[in-house]
Write a protein that binds this DNA or RNA. Structure first.
Ligand code: NAD
Ligand code: NAD
Lengths: 195, 195
DNA sequence: CTCACATTGAGAAAAAATTCACAAACCAAA
DNA sequence: TTTGGTTTGTGAATTTTTTCTCAATGTGAG
């Protein structure tokens, strides 16, 4: 679904107004029926004999994926990785905004990263309300990840993305996802061996 | 498959010697038959009436995934993200070693990151041979990604992991994978909306 | 308005993946 | 050696996913 969205955005940028499922399928590298089934799943967007209106369809998918709102994120642990994420522009275009940078280290507090000021993790709860933070991102060292998670949960945030290579435990109503860099490397080396 | 491996490693660390498909299935959150099918796919490892020998099975999966060798990687673009990846310990345990740090910026060349010295991108070809580099990792700004890719291809490296948010074009015999941070955020926000 | 053409939406068919079920194989104890 | 209790490996059954097909519907020309 995210692939369709990306292709649709490219088409829109090229000025295309209408696209047929077969053309879109070709661009996405899938079967035309696949596309029609997927799109029909959450509403009827096509026009028989014509195709799909690129902009309308794009908006519908965005709405379905929740990309028509902006989502506010906080980063906890402002080391190399935290900074890289704050500076990463690509996510802003998709409607995710990093609105808070938190760290435990007293020497870092007050320091500027981009146009964010690093804030003490203890103030996360207070700031989460103020900034309406919906997603917490953990980029602390592994042995601090659980502590960071606790702060995020405490602040009432219901979604966590954890970059540190440790499992964290949280209440059932909090969604956690893990980023594992090694996954990509395993894929590549596997391909190198097995074609 | 990578999940089985992780669970097996945990089991080995706990001193377990034998595991049945049903126990392993439980730990991985899948069906026992699933496990037996998957394992039977690349050889007969189990012992009827007994189960699977944890260590043997772990080794076999590692071999199958190519994780019994060490893979040498080079990072091209030593900014925040590049540094974060170099310092990231978790991948070393899986057999991936970052043996080269390359950057274009003359002011960075010679600088130390961890125990690596930053080398000029122009020397990539020469160093790739010397260090037997098999995987190239791009962490340059987006507008430099293609140039970095060209250097990597030129150096005879056949696998590329691209962190910059741009598509790159390479010859057919080079494998490319893309890391898109936004994928994880989309997953989280989608879950927040749709349960 | 009618006709020729294009394309969707959805049910039918095909393919793929998952799960079930059980014979074959193994171990341990008697 | 035989017996009883396990657990794998695999063919069959089931479920899910993907693809095919075509009636229904829209467009635009005449
Ligand atoms: N998942 C991946 O793909 C991936 C890739 C690279 C790095 N990593 C991991 O990301 C983590 C961070 O990497 P890095 O290079 O930025 O490390 P780093 O040491 O540069 O930064 C860690 C930061 O966390 C702060 N911190 C420590 N305890 C804290 C706490 N309780 N609350 C708030 N902040 C706290 C530190 O002050 C420091 O600024 C590491 O665990 C690393 O292994 C993951
Ligand atoms: N995929 C993801 O999930 C993700 C996450 C965060 C950042 N990023 C992306 O990663 C990239 C790097 O981020 P960063 O924060 O480290 O940026 P940065 O600006 O700190 O570092 C970029 C480095 O690349 C070097 N460089 C530029 N041109 C080069 C060339 N031709 N050859 C070799 N080196 C070259 C620069 O000298 C600099 O050191 C950005 O494109 C960013 O958008 C991706």
């Amino acid at each position: 679904m995210a692939v369709y969205l990306q292709v649709l955005e490219e088409l829109e940028a090229e000025g295309e107004e209408i696209i047929s499922s077969s053309k879109l399928a070709q661009l996405c590298g899938v079967n035309p029926s696949q596309i029609r089934k997927d799109l029909a799943y959450f509403g009827e967007f096509g026009v028989r004999g014509v195709g799909y209106y690129v902009t309308d369809l794009k908006e519908s998918i965005k709405h379905f994926l929740g990309l028509d709102k902006t989502w506010n994120c906080a980063i906890v642990g402002i080391g190399n990785l935290g900074r890289a994420l704050i500076n990463h522009r690509a996510i802003k275009d998709k409607g995710y905004r990093i609105v808070g940078a938190f760290d435990w280290d007293p020497f870092k507090i007050g320091e500027k990263v981009g146009d964010l000021e690093i804030i003490c993790t203890r103030r996360l709860k207070e700031k989460a309300k103020e900034l309406n933070i919906q997603i917490g991102i953990i980029t602390t060292p592994p042995n601090r990840a659980q502590r960071a998670a606790n702060h995020i949960v405490e602040a009432g945030i219901k979604a966590i993305l954890n970059f540190s290579p440790t499992r964290i435990s949280v209440p059932d109503d909090v969604i956690v996802d893990y980023v594992e860099f090694s996954r990509y490397l395993i894929y590549l080396s596997f391909k190198l061996i097995h074609g």
